[in-house]
C-alpha cells in the first residue's frame, strides 16, 4: 500500500512540475508550448554532460556536490532552452495576428528540430543520470521505499510550494497573474508583456528541468524522453484549470494515483485510457478544470 502510494506520488511530482510549467506558459504567454518536451530533454542532457565531465576530469561519481550540480544545471539548461523557445516563437510573433496558431506551429517546429539535433549530437541511445539521492532504501516494517522516491516527492513539493508562494505574494507573481487575467490591461499598468512572458518561459523551463533530472532517476535520458511528460503535462494542466497552481497539483496527484493503481492492478498499457477518461470526466463536470481561476480561457 505504501509502495503504491509512493510510486503514485513520485509520478504526481514529476507530472506536477511539468504541468505547472505548461499551465504557467499557456495562461500567461497565451501560447501552447509544444516544445516543452524539447525543453524538458535539454535539461536532462545538460545534467548528463555535467555528470560525465565530473566523472572524467575529477573522478567524482556521487556525493552532494555532484547531486546539487546535476539538479542546478538541469534546471538551468531547461530554463535557457525555455528562453530559446521564447526568443524564436514568442518575441517575434506575439503581437502579430493569430499568435496562438502561429506560436503552436513555431513551437512544434522547434520541438521536431530539437529532437533531431539531440539525436545528431548524442545518438539514439539512452544516457543514464547519476543517482542523486543514493540507491539505498528506507525500510518501514515490511515495506521499503527508495530514497530516490522520497527525495523526488520532497523536492517537488518544496519547489511547487515555493512557486505558489512566489506567485501569490511577490510583485513579479502579481504581474504574471495580472497578465493571465488580462494581457491588455497588464500592458496598460506598465507590465511588459515581453519581459514577463520570457520570465514565465524561463520559470516553466526550470520546473521541467527539475522534473527531467528527477525522472532521470528512474528512466534514462533520450532524445524523445520529453514526449510522454509533454502529453501528460498538457492533459493535467487542462484538467487542473489553466493558470491555477493548486488545481494543477491536485490534478497531477489524481492522475499519478490513477496511473499507479492502473499499472499495479491491470497493465501498463491501460494507463493512457484511464488517464484520458479521467480528464474527460473532470472536464465534463468542471469545464474550466479543477482550479478554474480564469474567467474565460484565452482564445
Amino acid at each position: 500500500m505504501i509502495e503504491l502510494l509512493a510510486s503514485a506520488l513520485v509520478l504526481a511530482s514529476m507530472y506536477g512540475l511539468v504541468a505547472v510549467g505548461i499551465s504557467l506558459t499557456w495562461s500567461s504567454v497565451g501560447m501552447l508550448n509544444l516544445a516543452q518536451g524539447f525543453v524538458f530533454t535539454a535539461g536532462g542532457y545538460v545534467a548528463f554532460l555535467f555528470a560525465q565531465y565530473m566523472a572524467k576530469n575529477f573522478s567524482i561519481r556521487d556525493g552532494v556536490i555532484l547531486s546539487l550540480g546535476v539538479v542546478f544545471l538541469g534546471m538551468l539548461g531547461s530554463a535557457v532552452a525555455g528562453l530559446v523557445v521564447g526568443g524564436l516563437a514568442f518575441l517575434p510573433l506575439h503581437d502579430r495576428i493569430n499568435f496562438p496558431v502561429r506560436g503552436l506551429i513555431a513551437t512544434l517546429a522547434i520541438s521536431i528540430i530539437g529532437t533531431q539535433v539531440f539525436m545528431l549530437i548524442f545518438g539514439p541511445q539512452s544516457k543514464p543520470l547519476p543517482q542523486i539521492f543514493g540507491i539505498k532504501r528506507l525500510k518501514i516494517g515490511e515495506f521499503s521505499i527508495a530514497y530516490g522516491q522520497i527525495g523526488t516527492i520532497v523536492v517537488a513539493t518544496i519547489v511547487l510550494l515555493l512557486v505558489t508562494l512566489w506567485m501569490r505574494n511577490s510583485r513579479r507573481g502579481l504581474q504574471m497573474r495580472a497578465m493571465m487575467m488580462n494581457p491588455l490591461g497588464a500592458n496598460m499598468v506598465g507590465v511588459s508583456v515581453r519581459t514577463t512572458g520570457m520570465i514565465a518561459l524561463a520559470l516553466s523551463g526550470a520546473l521541467s528541468g527539475l522534473a527531467s533530472v528527477l525522472l532521470g532517476q528512474i528512466f534514462f535520458v533520450s532524445p524523445t524522453s520529453g514526449v510522454q511528460p509533454l502529453i501528460v503535462g498538457l492533459i493535467i494542466s487542462l484538467a487542473g484549470g489553466l493558470g491555477s497552481m493548486p488545481g494543477t497539483v491536485a490534478a497531477a496527484v489524481l492522475l499519478g494515483l490513477a496511473e499507479a493503481v492502473t499499472a499495479r492492478y491491470t497493465e501498463q498499457s491501460f494507463v493512457p485510457f484511464v488517464q484520458f477518461a479521467l480528464v474527460i470526466a473532470i472536464l465534463t463536470f468542471r469545464p474550466r478544470g479543477l482550479g478554474g481561476v480564469l474567467e474565460d480561457v484565452r482564445e
Binding site: 493571465m180 487575467m181 488580462n182 490591461g185 497588464a186 496598460m188
Partner: peptide, 8 residues
C-alpha cells in the same frame, strides 16, 4: 470600459 483583472 474597464481592463481590470477579474480573478484578482
Amino acid at each position: 470600459g474597464d481592463a481590470i483583472f477579474p480573478g484578482l
